[in-house]
């Protein structure tokens, strides 16, 4: 497939919290979203996972309007990891198998491999999620989303609760998934270093508006707007 093919396209998308957002995500691309607290970053991810509906504008996935794709299928293909882990009562294994189980594909779900992917030992399988630390819970949540084999991954500050070493592992993992599985990643982060390190493309959102977007290396070097320049300085 063409690397430049757009996998997600947002056209003039608005909600009561977002105004006229337009951008493109490309296949095998990592895009980072930055912006002040309350800017609407999480809200944007909700729209792409179709947990919320835009009041105007259109979103396309692989050229198809997402309104024309069965909702559950879309949500599996555009997987999402939330700002909080939101694990279900039960063991790590039960959580990881949740998605595949819904579709009766539990046999295809290699829990050991998924735990391995997020740097958790296999002994964690039978651990109750309530006994896990915040960072461990977040990693189980990431594994749970991976279990659905998404082709786009939406991450909402997925590494903000993790230490430097685990964060590095997750970052390596994302890069590996992009290279090997051709996954596109859209990640919200408060960590500007991470946004610059991981992003090929960066979106800067403030007060519900997409004020700046472009190749990460370019806009971090030469911000076009005062807003983004100010934000980088803080």
């Amino acid at each position: 497939m063409d690397k430049n093919q757009s996998i997600i396209t947002c056209k003039d998308v608005s909600t009561d919290r977002l105004k006229d957002i337009s951008f493109e995500l490309r296949r095998k691309q990592i895009t980072t979203i930055v912006g002040p607290s309350g800017a609407g970053k999480s809200s944007l991810l909700f729209l792409l996972n179709r947990l919320e509906e835009p009041t105007s504008g259109e979103i396309y996935y692989l050229g198809r309007n997402i309104k024309d794709i069965p909702v559950t299928q879309l949500r599996c293909e555009i997987g999402m990891v939330f700002q909080s882990a939101y694990l279900f009562d039960g063991t790590a294994e039960e959580n990881i198998q949740y998605g595949p189980k819904l579709r009766g594909e539990v046999e295809d779900c290699d829990v050991n491999r998924l735990l391995d992917l997020v740097d958790l030992p296999q002994s964690f399988k039978s651990r109750y999620v309530t006994s896990l630390s915040g960072g461990e819970q977040q990693r189980v949540a990431i594994a749970r989303t991976f279990a659905n084999k998404p082709s786009v991954l939406l991450l909402d500050e997925a590494t903000s609760a993790l230490d430097i070493k685990t964060t590095e592992h997750i970052e390596e993992l994302l890069i590996r998934l992009r290279d090997e599985k051709e996954i596109s990643v859209l990640m919200v982060t408060h960590n500007l270093k991470q946004a610059e390190r991981m992003g090929e493309q960066t979106l800067y959102i403030e007060e519900g508006r997409l004020l700046e977007s472009g190749l990460t290396s370019e806009i971090f070097e030469h911000p076009e707007t005062n807003h983004f320049e100010q934000f980088l300085k803080e």
């Binding site: 996972n49 947990l51 559950t72 299928q73 949500r75 599996c76 997987g79 999402m80 939330f82 909080s84 939101y86 694990l87 279900f88 009562d89 949740y98 998605g99 819904l102 579709r103 949540a141 749970r144 989303t145 659905n148």
Partner: peptide, 20 residues
């Protein structure tokens, strides 16, 4: 709310997401 959203985002139907 959070867990229901998580369940929906993993492809659960409203029925499956509200079972618990």
């Amino acid at each position: 709310k959070g867990r229901i959203l998580a369940a929906l985002s993993l492809g659960a139907t409203p029925n499956q997401a509200s079972l618990q």
